[in-house]
Design a protein around this nucleic acid. Structure first.
Length: 898
RNA sequence: AGGCACGUAGCUCAGUGGGAGAGCACCACCUUGACACGGUGGGGGUCGGCGGUUCAAUCCCGCCCGUGCCUACCA
């Protein structure tokens, strides 16, 4: 770089526009960068030279959000730094088109519903439905529905793509993928096949968390707790063959017909006599076993409780561990199923009464059934043994937490259904170990991973009863009666993937055998969206399809993501890499915070406080938005603050103006020899080390802050002012001998050339330090002269500044001379401010005091200080002042600025 | 209930075992030649509270208070 200083050219500031036009620069440079292949990954380079980003694939069906700008900019800043460090960057973009958000978006956008029984309409063309469609939604076939999903997501992706390009997100668009495309379906199904071969997946019919509205199974990761108002109902139970009664408290009286057991803590003396006997439920008079369980809390309710199929996760445990009866009450649609008590049905001491009572409940929804059963329980004839009503007193309102599907509106139920699971409970220790092999930024985020992993209670349910997504590549053989054999699933062969079992026949079968006795039946389900998106590193590396590419791209270097999906995306991705290859999926996880609105509330669509991104860019410029994002450290929730945009915009303008000045200096450059220049270079060198260290520690905010602070306080406000006169070939006013330093240096021209060279060198270094954060304004300035001088057409492929660039610049004679020069100038500025005259006013007389040591340090830079202060005359006075500080003892200023 | 993070100037946020900082906002001044999308100067904070360690604590330790989030709590 120092050699390049010799080739420094100048530009005529008159030829440059007066102001920086951010919008024009964004359009122009994006086009140039795309056309020149600036962001292209080079597959020929080795792994060590490559930097692989596991970019988050956004759900394109969501709405654009300032949070998108925020977190993707974080990553892009790191990526641009790596690119300038010479790394061959692999920076893809994916779109997560799977699943519910897309289906919902299509349903609303076109006012349709998927009806798998409807026939395919090849020529169906639907227009967007508009804001308030009338009438019931149109029912369309599954293939039509999927076509719409693909069309809508493709449209939505354009909005994102436009935003990324406008923001200067430097992805290689050749590496675009969609989680439903052929390649991703193949990788996803390969993953299933591999897990199947390794014994990590199984199918079972078991009670599973079930959303009654979506009628779909849910994994633990998608369930969330919500506080809800409920009420304890005290119900009197009888004891078989005895007058003994006891009272249980339940919030779910509607499940009474599904009561299959009663339990209390083994140490609870109140109920010790009951263990081993049978309780008799009220209304339905069903005898059920009474057993002790450590899981029962003597403090809660009455200490004794009913076990139902199924009220909650603990019921599932009791049901399984104590081999209780299954009396599934809530159906897939959330309504109470028909039950029969008596000889042909469930046991009851009074089947006739049981059936009579239950007839009042069957077919009702949960809320309706609860209301009804409370009425029934208040009837005197409902009691099992006692003459009074089984419901004691009024329901007691409580606040309790209830599990919901995160996108759902009614509480989850446990419904026995056949699902596919990935075994994770037996992998907890290995998962924790792998999680700690990853370096998290900030490091404490690993705790989120630990908490989740340690508390994992269920294997991962990966099958979903939805339409749009990756099909599970499985068929089941049908026996002679047409019953499927779930113990011997037929999993598609690797070479056949991807398959859709609903249209493809399994190996060894013909299509005509579908759903026929002796034939086969397709698994109708699709995968959980995370089953595919947990493979984004492998999707990019073409795992199992291209071993050389996989070796070059896996594990990835960085996984950027937000902290709310550590339990899903990060967790499942780590799990997949562990189960497939016993490795980690990436070396670093960078966790961005959330965007809060100016009132510190989380921004979300439901709160209606979303600001749309593009207008913000139009208003402030992409660099200013990036400045705001880059200023926030990883993991820190950040307010959407227009003030910060303005600060960023001001910085952009200042860079542009400073560059215009620096590059407008026309003098011939010389080697950097003057003391002030050498001292400034020394400070700059320290900045480069700090900023580089910041980037290496994934702390782009610190790097930016250091660079920005240096730029204002060490460059524009100080060095530029101090070196300005010399660079122009002027000295202090009235000095006739030529530029300052002429006496001490070999000649005036070399001192002048030293200043010009230092200005250019400083600008070149600072531009490159800013380039990752502010790609547009730095590229614009770079293009004026530096591109030709350094041989790097774009600043974004130019070498990151390093110590080697400083080697040819001699160290300053006095390490503190820059600081001393600044302090002296500030003292004179203060005197001018006190006298209420402009900083540009000439100083006719000046008595400047400092300690003798400080005055000695000032000597080699004195002429620059006097020139910057416009001092015609001066006297230096040794004084008892703290080292490094100056005082103006007296001064006289010119009447007006010349 | 356990955990993690945060609490520093009116606001947004850096920071470090020894001097309390930046930007914005505020006040005063300066039409200066790269920049008025500018410059110079200034006022403003018991660094959440209480203890402890230390020659010295905003920083380390303990407890407490407040805020946010994660996990658990579902009879």
């Amino acid at each position: 770089m120092h050699d390049a200083i010799q080739r420094f050219r100048s530009v005529d500031p008159e030829t440059l526009p007066k102001h920086f036009d951010a919008g024009a620069a964004e359009r122009r440079w994006d086009e140039v960068w795309q056309r020149s292949g600036l962001y292209h990954w080079d597959p020929k380079q080795p792994r060590v030279a490559t930097f692989v980003v596991d970019t988050p694939p956004p759900t394109a069906s969501g709405s654009l959000h300032p949070g998108h700008m925020f977190s993707y900019t974080h990553t892009d800043i790191l990526v641009r730094h790596q690119r300038m460090r010479g790394r061959n960057v692999y920076y893809p973009m994916g779109w997560d088109d799977n699943g519910l958000p897309t289906e919902r978006r299509v349903q609303n956008h076109h006012h349709v519903r998927c009806d798998p029984t409807a026939p395919y309409e090849p020529d169906l063309r639907l227009e967007p439905a508009g804001p308030k469609p009338s009438g019931p939604p149109r029912r369309i076939s599954r293939p039509n529905f999927i076509e719409l999903c693909e069309r809508v997501t493709a449209e939505d992706e354009q909005g994102y793509k436009e935003l990324w390009r406008r923001l200067g997100i430097s992805v290689d668009w050749r590496l675009e993928y969609r989680t439903v495309d052929v390649h991703c379906r193949r990788i996803s199904q390969l993953s299933f096949r591999d897990l199947f071969e390794k014994g990590h997946v199984y199918t079972s019919e078991a009670p599973t968390m079930w959303d009654v509205d979506f009628q779909c199974a849910i994994a633990q990761a998608e369930a969330e707790d919500r506080p809800r108002r409920g009420a304890f109902h005290d119900l009197e139970f009888g004891v078989e063959g005895s007058e003994r009664t006891f009272t249980i408290s339940t919030t779910r009286p509607e499940l009474l017909a599904a009561c299959v057991g009663v339990t209390a803590h083994p140490g609870d003396a109140r109920y010790a006599d009951l263990f081993g006997r049978r309780a008799v439920t009220p209304l339905f008079r069903v005898p059920v076993p009474i057993f002790p369980s450590e899981l029962a809390d003597p403090e809660k309710g009455t200490g004794v409780l009913m076990v139902c199929t199924f009220g909650d996760a603990t019921d599932v445990l009791w049901w399984r561990d104590h081999r209780l009866a299954l009396r599934q009450l809530v159906g897939r649609d959330g309504r109470l199923a028909p039950l029969r008590f008596g000889s042909a049905g469930f046991e009851s001491l009074d089947p006739e009464a049981a059936n009579r009572f239950y007839a009042e409940l069957a077919g009702k929804g949960i809320e309706g059934a609860r209301k009804k059963i409370v009425e029934l329980l208040a009837l005197p004839e409902g009691g099992a043994t006692s003459p009074r009503p089984p419901l004691h007193g009024a329901p007691r309102p409580i606040e309790h937490t209830v599990k919901f599907y995160e996108k759902g509106e009614r509480p989850l139920e446990f419904v026995p259904t056949r699902q596919w699971f990935v075994r994770l409970l037996d992998q907890k220790q290995a998962l924790l170990a792998k999680g700690h092999e990853v370096q998290w930024h900030p490091p404490f985020m690993v705790k989120r991973f630990d908490d989740w992993t340690e508390n994992l209670a269920q294997d991962w349910c990966v099958s979903r009863q939805r339409f749009f997504g990756v099909p599970i590549p499985v068929w089941y053989p049908l026996d002679a009666r047409g019953e499927p054999d779930f113990e011997h699933p037929i999993v598609a062969e690797r070479d056949a993937l991807p398959v859709d079992p609903t249209t493809d026949a399994p190996p060894g079968f013909r299509e005509e055998q579908r759903d026929r006795p002796g034939g086969f039946r397709a698994d109708p389900d699709i995968f959980d969206t995370w089953f595919t998106s947990s493979l984004t590193p492998q999707i990019n590396s073409h795992w199992l399809l291209d071993p050389a590419r996989h070796a070059a791209l896996f594990p990835a270097d960085v996984r950027p993501q937000a902290h709310d999906i550590i339990r899903t995306w990060a967790f499942y991705t780590i799990a997949k890499a562990l189960l497939h290859e016993n490795t980690i999926p990436w070396r670093h996880a960078t966790i961005s915070g959330w965007i809060l609105d100016p009132d510190r509330k989380k921004m979300s669509k439901s709160k209606g406080n979303i600001v749309t991104p593009i207008p913000l860019i139009e208003q402030h410029g992409a660099d200013a938005i990036r400045y705001w994002a880059g200023s926030a450290r990883l993991g820190v929730d950040t307010a959407l603050d227009e003030q910060v945009f303005k600060v960023g915009k001001r910085l952009v303008t200042k860079i542009w103006n400073a560059a215009k000045f620096v590059l407008g200096q026309t003098a011939q450059v010389h080697p950097i020899t003057s003391e002030l220049d050498r001292a400034f270079a020394g400070e700059l060198r320290a900045l480069v080390a700090r900023a580089t260290g910041g980037f290496e520690a994934f702390d782009q905010a610190q790097a930016l802050q250091d660079t920005e602070s240096f730029f204002w306080t060490r460059f524009t406000d100080t060095y530029l002012e101090l070196a300005k006169a010399r660079a122009r070939g002027e000295g202090p006013p009235g000095s006739k001998e030529g530029p300052p330093g002429a006496q001490a240096e070999a000649g005036g021209e070399s001192a002048r050339g030293s200043a010009v060279a230092t200005l250019r060198f400083g600008l070149s270094v600072l531009l490159r330090l800013f380039a990752p954060t502010l790609p547009y304004v730095t590229e614009e300035v770079w293009s004026w002269v530096f591109a030709g001088e350094t041989g790097h057409a774009s600043i974004h492929r130019s070498p990151w500044p390093d110590a080697a660039e400083f080697e040819a610049i001699p160290a300053p004679t006095e390490p503190e001379s820059f600081a001393v020069a600044v302090a002296a100038l500030e003292a004179i500025h203060k005197a001018k401010a006190d006298a209420e005259v402009s900083a540009g006013r000439e100083v006719l007389e000046l008595r400047l005091a400092a300690s003798p040591k400080t005055l000695a340090k000032l000597a080699p830079v004195l002429d620059d200080v006097l020139a910057a202060a416009r001092a015609r005359a001066h006297a230096l006075e040794p004084a008892e002042l703290a080292d490094g500080s100056f005082e103006v003892r007296s001064a006289r200023f010119a009447e007006r600025t010349p």
